[in-house]
Design a protein around this nucleic acid. Structure first.
Length: 202
DNA sequence: CTGAGGATCCTG
DNA sequence: AGGATCCTCAGC
């Protein structure tokens, strides 16, 4: 790995903030998955949602259990859960140990189709939290681990060119209510890159 | 012990 | 609008 890449890696302290701040800040950052084969898949984060401690839609809302325990871990851990008997979803744990909050990564934009996969539309193979975990081979074995090259799953900061495009208005961020929940449906805690074709739903 | 519900996705 | 598919937890 090059020096420039090492310096891009997001550290645990960066995640030690409210999920309401981390979620929009993760847009334009890169999620990287390195499999045991050495194959590396990188995806631009284009859609996120925040889940807070006092939030009825948050898995941590009713307190800590065996299945949601990783959400109460320190900032910068992964929290992966299994849903609808079929899909996994990936979160970035935020805030200090004991506080159950996280950011759900909802969609990635890939630059290439990973080896062994087929895709009619590159922009749709990671357009949704379940799809991105399937594409990157993320399951519960990766839950509770720090985002780090050592675990084969890490985050990298925005490239300067992306940040510049945001400040100059070439890229924009949209904010809406969250998807797929039945409680706290009026909270506008979903963010995505406006007009990005890899977002799960406009 | 039971069953409803779930931070999804695909098909019709 | 409905089904796949299964884990978790609240309620009895």
């Amino acid at each position: 790995m090059t020096v420039t890449n090492r310096n891009r890696i997001i550290r645990r302290e960066w995640c030690d903030r409210t999920a309401l701040a981390v979620a929009p800040d993760l847009l334009g950052c890169t999620l990287v998955r390195q499999k045991l084969t050495g194959e590396t898949i990188r995806g631009l984060i284009v859609e996120t949602e925040a889940y807070l401690p006092d939030d009825p839609a948050c898995h941590a809302y009713r307190g800590q259990t065996a299945s949601n325990a990783h959400m109460f871990g320190p900032a910068g851990l992964s929290y992966v859960y299994f849903i609808y008997g079929m899909y996994h979803c990936l979160n970035v744990v935020t805030e200090k140990t004991g506080i159950g909050s996280a950011v759900l990564i909802r969609a990635l934009q890939l630059k290439a189709v990973p080896a062994g996969l087929e895709a009619d539309d590159l922009n749709r193979i990671a357009a949704g939290p379940g799809k991105l975990c399937r594409t990157l081979e993320i399951d519960r074995r990766l839950s509770g681990l720090p985002f780090s090259p050592q675990t084969g799953l890490w985050l990298e900061h925005r490239h300067p060119a992306f940040s510049k495009a945001l400040t100059s208005g070439i890229h924009k961020i949209s904010q809406t209510t969250r998807i797929g929940i039945s409680k706290a449906t009026d909270q506008p805690w979903r963010w995505y890159l406006t007009n990005n074709p890899a977002v799960s739903k406009p």
